[in-house]
Computed example of a mutant assay.
Amino acid sequence: MGYVAKRLAALALLLFGVSIAVFAIVRLIPGDPVRVILGTNGGDAETVDRLTRQFGLDQPLATQYVKWIGHVVTGDFGYSYGQQRPVSDLISQNLWPTVQLALAGLLLAIVFGLVIGVSAALRRGSLYDTAIMSTAVTFLSIPSFWLGLLLLLVFAVQIPLFPVAGGAGLSGLVLPAITLGLGEIGFASRFIRSSVIEAGRHLHVVTARAKGLAGARVLQRHVIRNSLLPVITVLGLQFGSLLSGAVLVEIVFSRPGLGRLLVDAILAKDYPTVQACVLLIAVIYSVVNLLVDLLYPVLDPRIGVR
């Protein structure tokens, strides 16, 4: 319990630092949010002054931050300048599509990365190994926005199997998930290959093979099991990468989600929405990595938590 308490305290400190950073950085964006909202009426000094006071933007930054963070801890993220709605409503509306997309990409990375990585490790040094790892590097090198446009052109325009934009349900998730997950498949397969090869060199694995145990049994009980810990760590980090990568994918495929909401809020100088989106993404990323840390002693009882 002491280990968990320490990790939770570190998580709270991290999120506090993130909140300060995003609060300060978002105010470095050029432009006045009040004048952006008013548009052609932005030249009316009286209206600008009234809205500035209404949003509390005339107060010192420290005062603004204390008021904002005080509301955040109670679940109140404020009111969107641009969409004139509570930010919590916007978050609840756009959170699940982003999590759904990230989980779909992670599932692809786990399944295909495991199959490709293990099969390449078992054929280390062969033509198959060279070809499949070269393909993995290619996957890593493809920009997601370019791949998304290419998939749209082929499988939504020329071969209309999937919706061009904003499709609901499973059919609207396929192309975005492939776009988001393909690079992660390449990364996961390369890392899993290295981890399996390293686990196969352990003395107990060599001993098991020397005793004549079947190759499949050695692979399942000794090699893969011992290569899980570093792989799970990387998968936790990949989930954070998938969350950030969802920004471009959601824009390319016109999908609702936190990424698209965040970009629109930045362009509109919508401070409360930007702060809420970044803080929420940081929370999700940090909690996932905390869960990964807590899984260590479950997967390997030799690892104790203190």
Rank of each mutant, 00 (worst) to 15 (best):
Y3S: 08
A62L: 11
R35Q: 12
I25H: 02
R255K: 11
G183S: 07
L127F: 07
G75Q: 05
L151R: 00
S134T: 03
G42T: 07
I197D: 13
A102N: 15
V249T: 05
V22C: 04
V283L: 14
I224A: 13
V287G: 06
V278T: 06
V283A: 12
R193K: 09
L261V: 12
G167I: 04
G186I: 01
L28Q: 08
M133S: 05
A156N: 00
A102F: 15
I284M: 06
E46Q: 07
L203H: 14
V287R: 11
L213P: 01
L61C: 02
G82Y: 08
I142M: 11
G125E: 00
E46V: 07
V249S: 08
G240M: 00
V247I: 14
L261S: 09
T233G: 15
G31Y: 02
A276S: 06
V26N: 04
L38H: 06
P163I: 01
A165I: 04
A165L: 05
P86Q: 07
A246Y: 05
S241E: 13
Q64L: 02
V252S: 02
A214S: 13
L180S: 05
L280I: 09
W96Y: 12
K67R: 15
G105D: 00
A165F: 08
L161H: 06
R221F: 09
L61N: 04
Y79M: 13
L95V: 06
L108T: 06
D264N: 14
L262F: 10
V249H: 03
R302Q: 11
P301T: 06
F162E: 00
G148K: 09
F23Y: 11
T233C: 13
L151P: 01
P297I: 09
L11T: 14
L122P: 01
F77H: 03
V115T: 12
V137F: 14
F253L: 04
F155R: 09
R302L: 14
S195G: 00
V36K: 13
L57M: 03
L106N: 10
V18M: 10
L8I: 12
S286T: 15
L13A: 15
V278I: 10
Q84E: 15
V174A: 13
D89W: 00
P143C: 07
G17D: 12
L147S: 03
N289H: 03
L175N: 00
T273E: 12
T40Q: 14
I192S: 02
S286G: 11
A24P: 00
A168P: 08
L248R: 12
D89R: 03
T138E: 11
V111W: 04
T207D: 11
Y271L: 02
P297T: 05
F139W: 01
D129L: 05
S189G: 04
K67C: 05
E198T: 13
N289D: 02
I232F: 11
S171Q: 15
F16N: 12
L106Y: 09
R302G: 14
R225G: 07
V26F: 02
K6L: 04
